[in-house]
Design a protein around this nucleic acid. Structure first.
Lengths: 207, 207
DNA sequence: CGTGTTCCTGACCGTTTGGTCAATAATTTC
DNA sequence: GAAATTATTGACCAAACGGTCAGGAACACG
């Protein structure tokens, strides 16, 4: 029998410990590449004890994914339809880049999952995520039609923001290998670049 | 004893068959997630026969990676210092997007490798790749200084091109799940977007 | 043809993997 | 503090894994 919903303080603590350890291991190795022994060792628990809190390796993985997907989409939901178009998008870019810096493990977890065909979250991509993106694209189109935003395909614009910001988490080894600077500098110069770049591309021709 | 360099026609054919099958399996599952049985089955050979042509699973993987890395960087080398700055970069973007469309398996192979820390090719990233990028960035800076190109951090500009173009191969499941169109349309609209987007961002203010 | 080489396979091996289970230890509850 | 519940573990298992090997089949070449 496995715990479904944490009731005691020990359950709360250990479930969190396991999920945190699993995030390390899964984000570094992908689902198939990760092992329960690694997760258990990283969590400081025995393997049977890990399986006392989660029924299987897959249960840990899906618990991680579903718990994180919400947080992951928050920056997109935070775009204010009443705000200035260019400012809102630049702020969104900034929030996404901040997430890559603060939560690189989460970013790589999703990267691994999606590169390998998103077998565990394909439904949520084609459902809730698609709906959220559709809504945002409608807003972007309104901004473009009213002349507040340079006209582009809104879907590909969002893809470009995802790609350019998550790149600094998912492909960090490559970025670090080429720039040969510390993390702070990498993300600092990246923030400046993305701000200038998207500002220049998105600011509509005035009056 | 394992074959080092193909001599007979059978060796040539079977080594190629194995590498092609391995590309399928590794790009879908990453190195650790892939198994020799999968590769053998996909190649239509027995597992011992696969190991007759390659000494180990790792040998197949490194043969794939090193054989592909060269091809992967060709588009960057093809930038003509004598050409028009904006046109050359737009053409580069186009070539990279074409590679994502024509060689998605190769793109995902590298994506898997780099997301998981690039353990097999970190040397080539910090060596030859860095040198190539350094050279290209020097060219980009010259173009920027002479007013042929809008001024940006050249390194992050290249990163943005890698990110936005490879996104369509590496994260294709997500793109397809949101756009809900066929592959041709996805890449067609992506090409249009990237062309317009980079043109607008990179074209310098005239005289 | 025959003979040497290349090619291929079934059977096998040691290890790792995800997962089970009975027994015990720790904690909570009355 | 005893009973009931929760937490933890060592020992174990079947399957999957990467890899080996002896021997046979197919092929090249005189």
């Amino acid at each position: 029998m496995t715990i479904q919903q944490p009731r005691t303080r020990i359950q709360k603590k250990n479930r969190w410990t396991i999920l945190d350890a699993a995030l390390d291991v899964f984000s570094d190795n992908g689902f198939r590449g990760a092992t329960l022994d690694q997760i258990a060792a990283s969590a400081g628990l025995s393997k049977p004890n890990v399986l006392y809190y989660f029924s299987s390796k897959e249960a840990i993985y899906t618990a991680l994914l579903s718990g994180l997907l919400e947080t992951w989409l928050d920056p997109l939901r935070a775009i204010d339809p009443e705000g200035d178009a260019v400012d809102e998008i630049l702020a969104y870019v900034r929030r996404k880049l901040d997430m890559s810096r603060e939560f690189p493990r989460e970013s790589r977890l999703f990267a691994n999952e999606i590169v390998q065909g998103a077998p565990h979250i394909i439904d949520q991509i084609e459902g809730p995520l698609k709906d959220l993106v559709d809504g945002t694209c409608a807003l972007l189109r309104r901004w473009m039609n009213s002349g507040d935003l340079a006209p582009f395909d809104p879907y590909h614009l969002i893809f470009s923001i995802w790609a350019t910001t998550q790149h600094y988490a998912d492909f960090n080894v490559q970025v670090a290998g080429i720039l040969q600077t510390d993390q702070d500098t990498q993300f600092g110069t990246a923030a400046d670049f993305l701000d200038e770049f998207y500002r220049r591309a998105l600011t509509p021709v005035s009056g």
